[in-house]
Computed example of a mutant assay.
Amino acid sequence: MAEILYKYKDSVYANITNKCNCRCTFCIRFLKDGIGDTDTLWHQENPSKEEVLAAIRNYDFTGHDELVFCGYGEPTCALDILLAAAKVAKEEKGLKTRLNTNGLGCEENHGNIVPQLAEVIDSVSISLNAPNAQAYEKVTRPLVPSAFDKMVEFAKLCRDAIKEVKWSIVDVLPENQIEECRQLSEDTGIPLRIRHFS
């Protein structure tokens, strides 16, 4: 059975769904079954809200002050569970909450979800992956139309409602695309984090 909560480096992560509306060419879920301290993050069946909340309530977070919502699926594809779990993490465990997302949650849930996120999420990291729609479609292979524009709009909504928001890219992008991402970061007023691809 896949882990709902797992440790990776110095953080604790919540793996709440397998579902994702992208098929990124570099996604680790296509390369191996697990990461960090767990052998598998593939749920045979997606966990229920009750199972996720129980996992958080029963977990020993000693030495950790944050719970990160990031697994083998896109957390906003299980929005009801995400919101409930983040609330429990904050109110019952005293944790900060971070959402790692592809930024397509509004499209997935057919409306602006940012006000709901802002009530329980302290920081958001959005996978930019590419600096323009053409490159984004090629590397991210989204299952929704006009995904790049919708992702950028989501980022701007988060910027205006949530204290800490940043773009995230991996360092395997061509240098010219990294520079374009830096420019988009400047244009949107959202900081850019360049992660090492492992």
Rank of each mutant, 00 (worst) to 15 (best):
I4A: 03
I4H: 02
Y6P: 09
K7N: 10
K7D: 02
K19A: 08
C20G: 04
N21P: 06
R23P: 05
C24L: 13
C24F: 10
I28V: 08
I28H: 11
F30A: 14
L31C: 06
I35E: 12
I35T: 10
I35W: 09
G36L: 06
D37N: 15
D37C: 03
D37E: 10
T38K: 12
T38G: 08
L41Y: 07
E45V: 15
N46C: 09
S48I: 05
E50P: 07
E50T: 15
E51V: 08
L53W: 05
L53K: 08
L53P: 11
I56F: 07
F61A: 04
F61E: 03
H64S: 03
E66S: 04
L67E: 02
G71I: 00
Y72N: 00
Y72Q: 05
G73W: 01
P75D: 03
C77K: 06
D80W: 04
L82N: 00
K87S: 14
L95Y: 02
N102M: 03
H110Q: 13
N112Y: 08
N112C: 11
Q116S: 15
L117K: 06
V124N: 07
N129D: 15
P131G: 13
N132D: 14
N132I: 03
A135Q: 13
E137W: 03
P145A: 13
F148V: 13
M151P: 06
M151C: 11
M151F: 09
K156V: 01
R159V: 00
R159T: 04
D160F: 01
A161M: 14
K163S: 15
P174H: 10
E175N: 14
Q177W: 14
R182P: 05
S185C: 04
G189E: 01
P191Q: 00
P191M: 01
L192V: 08
L192F: 05
I194F: 05
R195G: 04
F197Q: 12
